[in-house]
Write a protein that binds this DNA or RNA. Structure first.
Lengths: 227, 227
DNA sequence: GCATTTGTAATAGTAAAACTATTACTTTTG
DNA sequence: CAAAAGTAATAGTTTTACTATTACAAATGC
């Protein structure tokens, strides 16, 4: 995808930040370097102190933008899901055949990211690795119900809804479109993680084509099963 | 399942503990109460200090059994996967038809646990809830490669292998048996978690029958697709 | 039978992480 | 150009995760 859309800005739930990091240079530096640091250290080992050191500011400054590192992770994952929804919309626009739409959506979801020039301070390639390894930690908490009420998972739910619409077009009687859509998103990441770190429990290697063909078979065989 | 098997002891990777918690009363109390506490507080809020308070021992005593809370979580999840493998083996024993074996395995995997009397100091019902909400945190770390070498994920891999064998019996040419098996295990938990906490992204409610029928359709339609 | 070793647990720490209060400086705006 | 608002640095506190040391009890050896 080229930078046709210029300065596109993604909508992120307001309560996720104290001050919008997209509104200042320092905020953008925080985003850029938090992605680099979380990807390299892992979320557990990542601290605001280390981030402050990286950008040459004290940790207290980072607290001006994000209440804690959990909300920063929620911000980054929300950004990713919003960006992926935009990719899916783009990949399915002007496509007549619903089956073709689904195939294109699967490709958009599963393809390993290369730098997207539309958002220059966000490295989407690194961000995708973070989402694969860390995003589930953002919702597997005791606070999920409250955070859901606060709209923290809106981006994810929007993306699921997009895929559900395509599935419903293909077969309005298929009973589990939401389960299939959320499974698609989660399984894609999980299998990529296993492929990289626990290869003995997956058949999928580093190549995107394998996951894509697995999901095309899965979705189509399930949606049309007993139709 | 009744207590036909008496004092069955599950094999847990040795390096996961400093002293075998199954070898003393105190060790068993640590297991019992860590399950209760992790389930009620969530893994992030769980500390050895709180556990010590619960069992009336100082936290240092718990370090005699487990190096840190991460290894305790790995111990508990290993125990769970070992126990589930034993349930799967039990459910598929003496079943002739491979398709029937797979169906029984799916039921054993997906059914919500009620207390199993074979292991009196472990509350399997609570432990299953822990595995649903917390188990992925045990492998989504930067240390996964080393921990895999140390055998920490042996129980999980054994269980995947059991399911793979059944799938291969059904269709030796199916190209993704491992992916299907690990997806089955992970998706089961994920969909149950979504059903409880983010119901808008799943069609599955609190009833086990729905997940079970989803998986039976999924596995059978995929395994036989284009056969 | 008593000394030695081994097992077990309590006290009292340390280091780092997570987060906050206060102050100072800088920019905006009425 | 003064008041208000925005921004960042210093210097904290509290909590968590983990450790070193000591004390006591049980088992073992000669």
């Amino acid at each position: 995808m080229h930078s046709l859309l210029g300065n596109l800005k993604l909508q992120i739930p307001e309560k996720l930040f104290v001050k919008d990091p997209d509104s200042s240079d320092l905020g953008k530096r925080i985003l850029t370097h938090s992605i680099i640091l979380i990807e390299s250290l892992g979320f557990e080992n990542f601290t605001f102190k280390k981030l402050g050191l990286e950008i040459g500011s004290p940790e207290s400054t980072i607290y001006r933008y994000f209440e804690n590192k959990h909300k920063l992770l929620l911000y980054l994952t929300s950004w990713y899901w919003g960006w992926l929804e935009y990719k899916v919309v783009f990949a399915t626009a002007n496509v007549e055949l619903a089956q073709r739409q689904l195939e294109n959506a699967i490709c958009a979801i599963c393809e390993t990211v290369k730098q997207d020039q539309n958002f220059s301070h966000i490295n989407e390639e690194l961000l995708q690795r973070i989402v694969i390894s860390e995003s589930s930690k953002a919702f597997l908490t005791k606070e999920i119900e409250q955070e859901n009420k606060d709209g923290f998972f809106k981006s994810y739910k929007n993306l699921v809804e997009r895929i559900v619409i395509i599935i419903r077009t293909l077969n309005p009687n298929y009973p589990h479109p939401k389960t299939l859509a959320s499974t698609l998103l989660e399984t894609n990441h999980m299998q990529k993680f296993f492929g990289s770190h626990l290869p003995s429990i997956t058949d999928i290697g580093k190549d995107d084509e394998q996951v894509i063909s697995y999901f095309k078979t899965m979705t189509l065989s399930m949606i049309n099963y007993g139709k």
